[in-house]
Nucleic acid binder design. Structure first.
Length: 431
RNA sequence: GCCGUUGUAGCUCAGUCUGGUGGAGCAAUCGGCUGUUAACCGAUCGGUCGUAGGUUCAAAUCCUACCAGCGGCGCCA
């Protein structure tokens, strides 16, 4: 038999055996002859009780010195007790402080500002840990879905030499003797890769140098992007809704404990299944106008309106067929009426708003060149991208899903910043 | 970039309107303690009131400038 190893707090069940655990002091409550210490590890927390008359004086003294976030190891007997969390506690037979360290600065009350100054310590908080677990499930289940649907994972570059979608929101940096940019989206590269693998995806960080400060934005986020050859606008939406529905089902199955601890009411999530509602941009405007707004058909929907619509509809839905003037040059236009284009946004319910933008790409060489010129870009800057339409151009579509947007909604958090361990915002690039 | 708002003890805040010797809770330290659930009780410790200048007999408080943070909007995932 191998030497007895440490077990996770969540695996502790009442038994006759002596067990060992290691982790950090989450809470500690000291009395004259008894001390309760709550041990925290990656799996959760468990109450341990140390009694003066059942410990060596050395262990008892150490227990008396223990403080929040000390690294500790414990030995004891797991017993059933309805006064403890999860009705199990460990009656200590030994207790060791492995690293005492200094006084942990994060206490009961924290302001947002203090929390952000101490993000490197705040990541270990109970709430944050639950969010990291849900996010891990989002990424894992997305990969699973792609794998099961014959998509190849690819690794496009994050450093790019050309500015796609305009330069104002790009972070630039010195690249030897040139200027390079941090990627806003690897879409154009995925479009190149479909000619090889047909169905591709990538999960990469995307950077936006927007100077906005909102609950919905961070300057660095993880982008789940897919691109598919021979798939049209309708087929693309089908892929998106199946992917999102799969992720929702996965987290409901695997993260019930986390949702409970985050106090997330999952009843809305439980009803979600593909296909989703689809309304045209025009219908969206009409719906809003019926609900007290006064918008014209080609007017841009603002956050307030999108949020209202998302609350009215109450389940995930697509807004499809946007006015062409609202969307970039690579979006394919309707053949019969170029006023509209094959672009759709997937909206989360409950007022969380946009999760995905996707659509069919312009695959006709001349139209693409004309559109680039109309938007005022230099055709030479997109030479390699235009090349893709010269050699066996195929109809294709794709989309970009924000991993943080999705996690934010699934967990029902106040702000998207909470879904990243080290959120990059306008005034925060440290720690 | 625009609008708003905040800066007082290690942390969370009151005190600013109406100028007159800086307060509370938490943390820490010491002591007490009935199986506690961010325990409880008592005591102690702890501050260049964001920075600079101005008004005044007197400024955390009024005025000016600056700095930093936070919230929102345009944008978007």
């Amino acid at each position: 038999m191998p030497k007895q190893t440490f077990i996770y707090a969540s695996k502790v069940t009442p038994s006759e055996e002596t067990i060992k655990l290691r982790g950090w002091v989450y809470r500690i409550r000291k009395m004259k002859d008894k001390i309760f210490v709550i041990l925290r590890d990656a799996s959760g927390i468990i109450q341990c009780i140390g009694s003066k008359n059942q410990l060596t004086s050395e262990a008892w003294n150490m227990l008396n010195e223990a403080a929040i976030e000390n690294y500790i190891t414990v030995e004891g007997n797991p017993v059933e007790d309805n006064r403890a969390i999860n009705n199990v506690e460990v009656k200590l037979t030994n207790f060791t402080i492995m690293h005492k360290g200094e006084i942990f600065p994060i206490a009961k009350d924290q302001s947002k500002e203090f929390m952000l100054d101490n993000t490197h310590l705040f990541v270990r908080s109970y709430k944050a840990t639950n969010v990291w677990k849900v996010k891990a499930s989002v990424l894992r289940s997305a990969r699973e879905w792609f794998f099961e649907n014959d998509f190849y994972e690819t690794t496009p570059p994050i450093l790019t030499g050309s500015a796609c979608e305009g330069g104002s929101t790009l972070f630039s940096l010195k690249y030897f003797d040139h200027t390079a940019y941090l990627s806003q989206s690897i879409q154009l590269y995925l479009e190149a890769l479909i000619y090889s693998l047909e169905k591709v995806y990538a999960i990469t960080p995307s950077f936006r140098a927007e100077k906005m400060r909102t609950k919905r934005h961070v300057n660095e986020f993880w982008h789940i992007e897919g691109e598919e050859a021979f798939v049209d606008f309708e087929g693309n939406m089908k892929i998106q809704e199946e992917l999102v529905a799969y992720i929702v089902q996965y987290v409901l199955k695997h993260n019930a404990k986390e949702f409970k601890e985050l106090k997330r009411d999952t009843s809305v999530l439980e009803t979600i299944k593909a296909p989703f509602n689809k309304i045209s941009y025009k219908e969206a405007i009409d719906t809003l106008n019926e609900n007290g707004f006064n918008l014209k058909w080609d007017e841009d929907m603002k956050t307030e309106e999108e949020r209202a619509l998302s609350t009215i509809i109450g389940e995930p839905f697509f807004i499809r067929d946007y006015p062409s003037s609202h969307k970039p040059f690579y979006v394919k236009l309707h053949e019969d009426d170029p006023k509209w284009c094959y672009s759709a946004d997937l909206m989360a319910p409950e007022g969380f708003g946009e999760l995905i933008t996707g659509g069919q790409r312009e695959d006709v060489l001349d139209t693409l060149i004309r559109r680039i010129k109309e938007e005022g870009w230099e055709v030479e800057d997109y030479a390699w991208y235009i090349d893709l339409r010269k050699y066996g151009s195929v109809p294709h579509s794709g989309f970009g899903l924000g991993a943080e947007r999705l996690t934010w909604w699934l967990c029902g958090l106040d702000a998207i910043q909470e879904t990243l361990p080290f959120p990059r915002t306008r005034n925060r690039v440290y720690p």
